[in-house]
Each structure stands twice: as structure tokens, then as C-alpha cells.
Nucleic acid binder design. Structure first.
Length: 272
DNA sequence: AGTTGGACCCGGACGC
DNA sequence: TGCGTCCGGGTCCAAC
């Protein structure tokens, strides 16, 4: 479930904690989470130093001093914790990285999620299909409008397409459409120029707001982290079926669109 | 090309 | 309290 704001929040919190840290211990409790035999994974990581943490869409890449990357995707339910001890028993975490200063990074809830050790080249290869970051300065309103006009699908489907933009998922696509007063099932290429501009601005506005209040992850990263999860009660439409629209009071509608949950206000959100 | 449906996975919610 | 069942959700892939 974590989307761009959650992963960016993780990245910015983890960067000062992890940069320059040397991995002194590795525990893997779930073999499927990683991409090589546990022994090989552990011995390759032990002694390595984390240089920096990079985010691409919903992916995190931990850059190691041997040219390899640890590639993390949390998928649904994945979460991270950092500190001297984890918030649960060690055995509940799929992977634990221990550092020289006594702190550890705990990887929890990885069911479909994964932590792969790959080369820099492989990382580039795996990220090359991703669309631009929503905050990429080259993604001007004009460039965005051009990309959008070439899409034949529905608006929500387009927003969650990682090749169109990297990092938007089910929750924020609905929140963005609400903010832009656009129906999520509208044809993406049918929007008039005023709508395209509202959408462009809403993407940045919603993602920035969510990031600033700590995203919607439930677990704090560290014991003294009070910021994480601040967006939980700020969703205006997502998971608010039948609750009144915060703008007009109309009950929020819930439908599925190509198999995914879709929440919107039938009064505020129009087709173009 | 876009849409649909199934597979993947298992913690947590729910029912009895 | 305990045990069984089912759901969810991002991504990939095959079939329309």
C-alpha cells in the first residue's frame, strides 16, 4: 500500500540514519523475500557500508559500497522500523540488518514485497520502465498534458500506471482526482485544458501534503517518531464510502474500476 | 492497446 | 481462548 509519500518519507528519515553505516549482521527469516541463497546474501552484505538511499517511484534502493544495491519494494503491507530493538519479536521480521552502532533496520510485513541484492546495472534495468517522478522538473504542465493526451484508458487507471508516472497508487489516485474535481473513471485523454492543469497541480499538491504530514503508514519508523501516519485521517474520499463529502455533504460513492477500489464524490467530481 | 481475471502471499479480521 | 476461513492489495502475465 505504501505509495510515493510513504516511501519518500522513509527515504528522508532513513538517509541520515543509514548513510555511512556499516552492516555488521544480517538475519533472514523468510527466504522468499530475497533473491539468492540466504548464506550468500548474508555473507555478501556483512561488512558493506550503505552510501545513500534512493527512491524511484515506490521503490527504495540502498546503495552499497561494492556497487550493488538493495532493492526494496514493500508491495502491500510491508513496513520498516529502525532502532536498537524492533517493535516486535525479531522472528516476526522477514529481514533484519544490524549496524555497527547497535541499531538495526527491520523489514516487516513482506508478503509479496521483497528485498533483492542486485548490481547497479540490474537496478537500472529494473527501473527503466518507470515513468517520470511526479516532481521531475522536466515534467512541465505542457509535457504532462502531452503524456496524458496519448493515454486511451481511464483517469484513475492512468494515474496508477507506473509507466505513466512513478509512485501513485490506489489511495492517492482517488485523493488526487477529488482534489482536481475530476471523475476517476473519466477518459484520460478527454480532459479540457483547465482540467489538465487542475490535475497537474493536484498531483503535486496532494503528494506534497501527504509527505509533509508523514504519509499514511501505521507503524512509526523509530520509537520517538510521531510524524509517521499523519495522513491517516486526512483522506477525503479513500475508504470513506457513504460518509459525507467534506465539501458538499453528498455521500461518497464506492465502486470498483478494473478490479480496484475507487472512491469519489458523485457531486463534486465531473468528467472533464 | 486497454481491459479483465487469476496468481502470488500471509497477517489480521472475523465467525463460531 | 482457539481454531478455521477469508480478504486485501501492487504487480505481473495471459487471454480477450
Amino acid at each position: 500500500m505504501p505509495e510515493l509519500p510513504e516511501m519518500e518519507h522513509y527515504r528522508s528519515q532513513l538517509s541520515p540514519l543509514l548513510c555511512g553505516q556499516r552492516i555488521t549482521g544480517v538475519t533472514v527469516n523468510r527466504a522468499k523475500t530475497i533473491n539468492e541463497p540466504i548464506e550468500a546474501f548474508e555473507s555478501a552484505l556483512r561488512g558493506r557500508t550503505i552510501l545513500f538511499v534512493e527512491r524511484k517511484g515506490k521503490h527504495l534502493l540502498f546503495h552499497l559500497d561494492d556497487g550493488h544495491r538493495l532493492h526494496l519494494h514493500l508491495m502491500l503491507g510491508g513496513w520498516l522500523a529502525y532502532g536498537e530493538q524492533g517493535p516486535k519479536k525479531d522472528s516476526h521480521f522477514q529481514v533484519i540488518l544490524r549496524f555497527g552502532d547497535g541499531n538495526s533496520l527491520f523489514f516487516g510485513g513482506l508478503r509479496l514485497g521483497y528485498l533483492h541484492r542486485i548490481t547497479a546495472k540490474a537496478a537500472l534495468e529494473e527501473m527503466k520502465e518507470l515513468g517520470p517522478d511526479p516532481f521531475d522538473s522536466r515534467l512541465t504542465l505542457e509535457a504532462f498534458g502531452k503524456r496524458l493526451s496519448g493515454k486511451k484508458g481511464k483517469l484513475k487507471t492512468t494515474l496508477t500506471d507506473q509507466r505513466f508516472l512513478a509512485g501513485i497508487g490506489n489511495c492517492y489516485s482517488d485523493e488526487i482526482c477529488f482534489d482536481a474535481k475530476l471523475h476517476p473513471a473519466a477518459a484520460a485523454s478527454s480532459l479540457d485544458s483547465a482540467s489538465v492543469e487542475r490535475l497537474y497541480n493536484s498531483i503535486r499538491k496532494v503528494l506534497v501534503e501527504a509527505k509533509e504530514v508523514g504519509g499514511y503508514m501505521e507503524h512509526p519508523l523509530t520509537p520517538d517518531d510521531t510524524l509517521t501516519g499523519g495522513y491517516n485521517d486526512q483522506c477525503r474520499v479513500y475508504d470513506r464510502k457513504d460518509e459525507p463529502c467534506l465539501v458538499c455533504g453528498t455521500p461518497i460513492k464506492f465502486e470498483t474500476l478494473t478490479g480496484r477500489k475507487m472512491f469519489y464524490c458523485p457531486n463534486c467530481q465531473k468528467d472533464s
